[in-house]
Design a protein around this nucleic acid. Structure first.
Length: 267
DNA sequence: TCCTTATGTACAA
DNA sequence: TGTACCTAAGGAC
């Protein structure tokens, strides 16, 4: 689940908790901090890339990063007894939210929060994002564009699915060096990320296939990928490309699975 | 019941 | 570059 769109969606959904919030850490690893915010209202929520910030009082923040395994589940009260993997349970009068398996769940202050923002690149889902900042890094780098897109200092919020899909949608070879990406290409990629990721927040899933390439439009049987959305290349290794029929390729790049269509992605 | 895998990151060497 | 960390689902036995 967790790419940037998931985290921004969580910021919206956590933000619906109202009034004094009960906070607990059934699993125990966050007990001391949970007791510090227990009984206080959740005043604001914010996301930057894959980082989620829940604001309590004036300057207390619960900083959450889901990592690869983290999950958040919402439900109506009464909440069931928490299992021993729930790191943080928040609840108001009507609903509860359980957090499991996060890489990070820590109580921080404004200064520490600012430090997190400072080490993240522009986020396509934030209004304050400056895509030129990302292009400055990309255009000076010999690193592959595939690796640069996953680097949160360069762009915040893009993960393995959006990386693979946006490069496909723009016909860009993932092994192309950053400095060979033209300003026009970056403008197009950035604009596409903004649109795709906003749609991801709305639908709470990743869909990247253009209307003219959907199974219905192409006369193929309807299909939804395992992870919940309709995509061109992600986890479609060896299957024929929706557009050109070439077998989708996969490779290991910096210990992550890369997917691309050698037929469509040559520029 | 065990093994593999995963939409992620940080740190050591 | 390798390894550690966090959890749950699915598939092989």
């Amino acid at each position: 689940m967790p790419e940037g769109h998931t985290i921004h969606r969580l910021a919206l959904d956590y933000g619906r908790l109202t009034g004094p919030v009960r906070a607990s850490s059934p699993q125990g690893k966050f007990s001391d901090s949970a007791s510090l915010v227990d009984g206080t209202p959740l005043t604001r929520t914010e996301a930057h890339g894959k980082h989620l910030f829940l604001g309590f009082r004036d300057s207390d923040w619960v900083h959450i990063h889901l990592g690869l395994f983290g999950k958040v589940t919402f439900g109506a009260v009464p909440a069931p007894p928490a299992t021993d993997t729930v790191r943080l349970r928040l609840a108001d009068a009507t609903s509860y939210v359980d957090l499991r398996g996060p890489t990070t769940c820590a109580l921080i202050n404004d200064e520490e929060k600012a430090a997190v923002h400072a080490r993240l690149g522009p986020d396509p889902l934030r209004d304050d994002a400056d895509p030129d900042l990302a292009y400055r890094r990309i255009s000076r780098s010999r690193t592959t564009v595939a690796a640069l897109l996953m680097d949160q200092k360069v762009v915040a919020g893009v993960g393995n699915v959006y990386r693979a899909e946006v490069l496909f949608r723009h016909g860009i070879d993932p092994y192309r060096a950053g400095r060979d990406i033209t300003p026009a290409q970056w403008d197009a990629v950035w604009g596409d990320l903004v649109a795709l990721m906003h749609e991801g927040v709305r639908n709470n899933r990743i869909d990247t296939v253009r209307p003219e390439h959907t199974p219905e439009a192409m006369g193929r049987p309807p299909r939804v990928d395992d992870h919940g959305g309709e995509v061109y290349v992600y986890r479609r290794a060896t299957l024929p490309c929706h557009i050109c029929g070439t077998g989708i390729r996969t490779a290991d790049l910096a210990s992550r699975n890369l997917f691309w269509c050698p037929g469509c992605q040559q520029t």
